[in-house]
Amino acid sequence: METQPFTAHQLFHLKPATLERRIQAFYDESGDGTTVIKLVRLLQIRDTLGTEDLGTPCLPLVRTLYIDHPTRSMKRYFYYFQAYFSAVEWAALVQSFFAKLPYFLLWKKIQTMEAVCELMAYAFTVP
């Protein structure tokens, strides 16, 4: 079972700058990028629910994790961090994370066309 580096009280009551420093220190010590992404996502939720404006918390750390050290488990939270990247970087990251997506879409189109062709053969027959 995974242990969290912070308590719920710390995550929702500490100042954002303090949390960012502690998250950076946690990453430097443990190297656990997946937990860092989850913690930053929690800060985004805190920003949405709270009155203070956090902006893009841990911007350099998140950019480094997704560009240099992406993992499969970080893929789940990928779309929450679109504001952290430029349009060109975002397109490159989407292509690298979902490289097989165009092949799947092409396969799906071929399957649909085969089904339509089968139905078209019976559409114009007289019963």
Rank of each mutant, 00 (worst) to 15 (best):
residue 3 T to C: 06
residue 5 P to I: 00
residue 7 T to V: 00
residue 9 H to F: 05
residue 10 Q to W: 01
residue 10 Q to T: 03
residue 12 F to M: 12
residue 12 F to S: 11
residue 13 H to K: 00
residue 14 L to A: 07
residue 14 L to H: 11
residue 14 L to V: 00
residue 15 K to S: 12
residue 16 P to D: 00
residue 17 A to E: 11
residue 18 T to E: 15
residue 19 L to Q: 05
residue 20 E to P: 02
residue 22 R to D: 15
residue 24 Q to V: 01
residue 27 Y to C: 09
residue 30 S to R: 05
residue 31 G to V: 01
residue 31 G to N: 09
residue 31 G to L: 07
residue 32 D to R: 08
residue 34 T to R: 09
residue 37 I to L: 03
residue 42 L to I: 01
residue 43 L to H: 06
residue 45 I to N: 02
residue 48 T to M: 12
residue 48 T to Q: 15
residue 51 T to D: 15
residue 52 E to Y: 03
residue 52 E to C: 00
residue 54 L to D: 13
residue 55 G to V: 12
residue 56 T to M: 05
residue 57 P to K: 02
residue 59 L to Y: 13
residue 63 R to K: 14
residue 63 R to L: 07
residue 64 T to N: 15
residue 66 Y to E: 06
residue 68 D to V: 01
residue 68 D to F: 10
residue 69 H to I: 09
residue 70 P to E: 10
residue 71 T to Y: 01
residue 72 R to D: 15
residue 73 S to Y: 05
residue 73 S to V: 06
residue 74 M to V: 07
residue 74 M to D: 08
residue 74 M to E: 01
residue 76 R to I: 06
residue 78 F to Y: 02
residue 78 F to R: 05
residue 78 F to N: 04
residue 80 Y to A: 14
residue 81 F to I: 11
residue 82 Q to Y: 02
residue 84 Y to H: 11
residue 86 S to D: 10
residue 87 A to L: 04
residue 87 A to F: 00
residue 90 W to V: 09
residue 92 A to W: 01
residue 93 L to I: 06
residue 93 L to R: 01
residue 95 Q to D: 14
residue 100 K to H: 14
residue 101 L to V: 10
residue 103 Y to T: 13
residue 104 F to S: 01
residue 108 K to R: 07
residue 109 K to I: 15
residue 112 T to N: 09
residue 115 A to M: 02
residue 117 C to A: 14
residue 118 E to C: 05
residue 118 E to N: 12
residue 118 E to R: 10
residue 120 M to D: 11
residue 122 Y to P: 04
residue 122 Y to C: 02
residue 125 T to I: 07
residue 127 P to E: 13
